[in-house]
Each structure stands twice: as C-alpha cells, then as structure tokens.
Design a protein around this nucleic acid. Structure first.
Lengths: 193, 193
DNA sequence: TAATATAATGAGTGTATACTCATTAAGTAA
DNA sequence: TTACTTAATGAGTATACACTCATTATATTA
C-alpha cells in the first residue's frame, strides 16, 4: 500500500502538472517557473525535485495532453462516421482544450523538438478519423477529386488560422465556439463535388 | 549637400536594417542584438545609437518590409486580373521574402502589437487584390457561394499552414516553391462551382 | 590650424531567468 | 522513542540578454 510520503509526492507532482497547464495556457510557454510555483503554492525548488528541467516538464505535459485528446477523439468518433459530425467533434475537442491548444499552435517554434513531434502526432490521429469519415463520401463521388492530404491540410490550415488570429475574429471569447458553424459550413461547401 | 558624417550615419543605419533582416530570418526574432552587431561588423552600442530599443528596430524593419511587399503586389497585379494569376503572384512575392515572412508567421505572438498590426495590414492588401481578381468570376457564377472572407481565409490559412510546417512538407528547401502548383490547383478546384 | 560637434565604440550595469544545494520538517522502521 | 530517510524549501549561483555611458576617432567649422 502507498505510504503518506508517496501520496504526498504524487499529489505535488500532479499539482505542478495541472498548474503548469493553467499558467502556460494563460501566460504562454515563456511563463517563468516561479509563476507556476507561486500559482501552485509550492516552493520554486519543488518543481526541480519532480522535473530535472523545464523541458522535461513540457514533455510530460504534452504526453498527457496528447493522450487526453487522442482518447477523446477516439471515443467520440465511435458514435458517428460522417464528415460533418466529425468536423463538429473535432472542433468540440479543441474548444475543450482551447487555451492550451492555442498556445501550442502559436508558440510551437520555441518548443523542444520532442514536444513539437507529440503535437504533430495529435494531428496525425485527427487525420485518420478524418479519412475514415470522408472515405465513404469520396467513393460515392460526392467529394471533389483533390488529394486527401490537401483536403485535410485545408481544414487544419483554416482551423489553425482562426485560432492564431482569434483576437481578430472574436475578441475576448472562444473563436472556435463563435465560428464553428461557419467554418464547418464553408468547408463542406468547398469540398462538395 | 549631405556631408560625409550624414552619409556614414545613414550607411550604418542601412547596414543594421539589412543585417537585422538577415539575422532574424535565419535565427528568428529572439536572436540577440550582439548577433546583428557581429554580422554587420559594427559595435554592439551602435545599434542603440540608431534605435533606442530593439522594438524600435523591429517596427522600422516591418515598416519597410510591408512597403516592399505592398508595392510588389501592386505592380504585379497590374498585369493580369484573373484569380489563378493572382494566386501565383502572391506565392511568388512570398517566395521572394520567404525567410523573413516565415519568421513573422511563426513568431508573431512574441512581437510587439505595432509589428503585428503592420503584418495584418499586409494581408489586408493581399485581400483587396484577391477580391478584385475574384469578383468577375464570382459574378459569372463560376465560384461557390461562400462568403468572400471565408474564401480568402481558406487560402491564407492553407498558405500559412504550409509555411509553418515547411519542414514536414519540404525539408531544407522552399515549401512554397515546391508546393506552389499543388496549392493553387487544389484551391482553384475547391472554390469552383 | 585649432576648437567643436558627433558617430562609433565596448566594457560595464541591471534584470530576468533556469537551476543548485545545504537545510528543514515530516514520515517510516527498529 | 530513537535513528534514519526523503520530500520540500528558498536563498544563492550562473547565464543571457537589453541597454548605458565615458571615451575615442573623425568630420566640420572658425
């Protein structure tokens, strides 16, 4: 059975992870570690007891984030497999994690390679579901004859463009929530044969 | 007539601007000012003789950059006004400035507000040319009935997505040069009625 | 030529940050 | 209860940077 020590340790680690997600979502990834320590109400040094470097913390954060997103995508995509539902579900998952996801798209350049690759792996998972939903309609000749990866990149490009320029389209609120239907409608109209 | 002093001064300022563009293109905007001074073969302090802060340097850089891009777009769009030519011209202009433009798209978050606004103003100019080229074809019913801003955002989203993920699509070379034709073909196929 | 003005220099300063480590406090085992 | 182990602490260190300013070198003016 786990002793008090082990539980306390695990609890502190969890607090660091949760607080880091919160602080990075709000302040961006250049937020100093003292901001995380302050918000989590632990000492600065504690962070380095659990994570040798901030890079290790980031990698851990993204590992968890990607697991969450992937499992959400997976369980939601069970229910229905047409393209409209899938786009809607995709946006819903992003809305749920909008703060952190937006930071990832905005600040990817400055993140370590491993973190970037984990983020790319998320898109890869999305593309698999995207393909599964689109394939029947493509076979049925309802979709324009354009390479699949182009269709997917157009969708992701559009969604990320809205995330990156959210302040322009929807100041002080969720761009995705506000623009969800017009994004989906427009994209569907574009790809239809 | 300009004395030797004034000419020398102007020449140094120019050297700083040109070198800063080069260094920022290669290393990103977090490149330290000593890197610019070193590359320009001037002393570190000289930068601050000409620009009180790095922010002032950045603003100056973008002012010039946006003037260049806008005038290129303007002179090129004179020649022909159909949408295919315009897209091609747009990509060509971006290819010409790809290093710096790519950095702007990647690191926009960390740039001062004034710089971001200048960058947005460039897109605004592009959208005007885009509309002019598209309008005749829209009137003729050749284009899908989708709000104009959606068409434009889809295009820009796609192009920026390729710039941001260039390493994935075309490692060690110009993504835009490599993917230009497929970007244009796919986009035209999508928007056609 | 001598006096003055100023562009350019680069060692030096201040600040923000990640990370360290000796110390403390609290759990665990004898 | 006592000795041992370890999570947590936070003052301290090292580093990287933007920006300063007294000094130097060069042009301009009298």
């Amino acid at each position: 059975m786990p002793g008090k020590r082990q539980m306390q340790k695990a609890q502190t680690k969890r607090k660091i992870i949760d607080t880091a997600i919160k602080v990075y979502s709000e302040q961006g990834f250049s937020a100093p570690t003292i901001a995380i320590a302050g918000e989590a109400q632990i000492s600065h040094g504690s962070i380095f007891v659990h994570f040798p470097t901030v890079e290790d913390l980031l990698v851990c954060l993204l590992e968890e984030f990607s697991q969450d997103i992937k499992s959400e995508l997976h369980s939601l995509s069970e229910s229905g497999r047409n393209i409209e539902k899938l786009l809607s579900m995709h946006i819903d998952v992003l809305i749920k994690h909008e703060g952190f996801y937006k930071r990832l798209t905005k600040e990817a350049v400055y993140l370590p390679e491993e973190v970037k690759n984990t983020f790319i792996a998320i898109q890869s998972t999305v593309s698999i579901h995207f393909l599964q939903a689109l394939e029947p309609e493509m076979r049925a000749g309802k979709i324009k004859e354009i390479p699949f990866h182009m269709l997917f990149n157009t969708w992701l490009g559009l969604v990320h463009y809205y995330l990156l320029n959210g302040e322009l389209f929807a100041p002080r609120e969720s761009v995705l929530a506000r623009c969800k239907s017009s994004l989906i409608e427009s994209f569907l109209a574009l790809i239809k044969q």
